[in-house]
Structures are given as C-alpha cells and as structure tokens.
C-alpha cells in the first residue's frame, strides 16, 4: 500500500515540479515578452530619469520628489492606478470629465513602480494639476487644516525644507499627465 502511494506520488511530484516552473516562467518572464504594451512608452510619456541626467532641472526635481514619495511611504496609503471600474474613472476625473483608465504604457519608466495596494487616501494616478502648489504646501504641513477628518500624517520636515517641498510638489503635479486628458489643458500649477 505504502509503495503504491509513493509511486503515484512520485509521478505527481514530477508533474507538479514541472508545472511549478511552467507557472513560474509563464507568469513572470512570458507576459512581458508577449504583451508589448508593458514596455512601449505612451506617446506623451517623459523619461524623467534620463532627462534629469542630461541636466533638465524640472525632471531633476520630479525625480527627487519621487524619491521622497518612496522614502516616506506615501505609497502605503495611496494607489496610482485608475482601474477599469467606472467609479474609479469618475473619482479620478475632473469637472464631470471622466479620466482615462491607467494603461501599462504610462508606467514604463516607473522604477520602483508605485501602483500601491491600499487606498487609505485617494488614488493619485490623475492628481497632477488638481490643486496648486500652495495647496500642497499647506496640505503637507497639516492635512487636517485643509481637509478636516483626514487620516494623512503631517510632514513638517518636508514642508520646512523648501527644496524637498518643491521637489515633492513637482512630482505630485506630474502624475497622470502622460495622457493629456483634461479639456483645454485645464491644470493647476
């Protein structure tokens, strides 16, 4: 009896191991090769990392801001993806205009990716141009002063550092702008 069980479980073992590797490869390496949209940048997408290296001051600020966003763990509370769910496109939208859903080609240069998993705060995939710089400065210093009941922590060490504040704001204002989706380019500065 034991022998029989062992024999059939050996066959199963080999099959499962093979299947494990097929699964591992088909779901990690293969999709990127099969789906070209994962690596082909959207027409309006800027490669800020490369631009920053070539001396572009705006791109540099955006990259620094992005590093702050990573460092402070903003991404544990904010997602950056307008999903294929109607309510998402309305919530990310602007003055009755629905926002386009997020597509892989908008994120080709994101390293690390900032899609996020949890929405303790709102999705930020289309937040660029929603508020002006002054709003963000006040918001980072004390979110509840602008939005009573907010669960977002204050970031005084950023608000008090003009360089960091400018960088983080520049990054937030860049989000979702690869697709120029608002009517008549109606973005706050």
């Amino acid at each position: 009896m034991i022998n029989k069980v062992n024999k059939s479980s050996m066959i199963f073992a080999v099959a499962a191991t093979v299947f494990f590797w097929i699964g591992g490869i088909l779901t990690t390496a293969a999709p990127a090769l099969l789906d070209k949209s994962w690596s082909k940048p959207a027409p309006g997408l800027k490669d800020y990392a490369t631009l920053a290296k070539s001396g572009d001051a705006d791109a540099k600020a955006i990259m620094e801001g992005r590093a702050i966003y990573v460092r402070e763990g903003c991404w544990y509370c904010h997602t950056q993806q307008t999903r294929t769910i109607e309510a998402d496109t309305i919530r990310s939208g602007w003055r009755g205009e629905k926002s386009p859903v997020s597509t892989p080609d908008e994120f080709v240069y994101d390293q690390p990716h900032m899609f996020g998993t949890r929405r303790t705060g709102p999705d930020l995939s289309r937040v660029g141009g929603k508020y002006d710089g002054q709003w963000h400065a006040a918001h980072f210093r004390d979110p509840r002063s602008l939005v009573p009941g907010s669960a977002m922590p204050p970031f005084p060490w950023i608000a008090n550092d003009p360089k960091e504040l400018a960088a983080l704001t520049a990054y937030i204002q860049s989000l979702g702008r690869a697709k120029n989706w608002r009517p008549s380019g109606d973005y706050e500065q």
């Binding site: 990127a32 892989p104 390293q111 690390p112």
Partner: peptide
C-alpha cells in the same frame, strides 16, 4: 525586480 520597471516590475513584485 532591479532590472525591470513599470507593470513588468509590479508583476514580479506581486509574484
């Protein structure tokens, strides 16, 4: 994940 970005990296991350 160090050699990838965007959706490709996210996919490895979730794997």
């Amino acid at each position: 994940t160090m050699f990838t970005s965007g959706v490709n990296q996210a996919n490895l991350n979730w794997f």
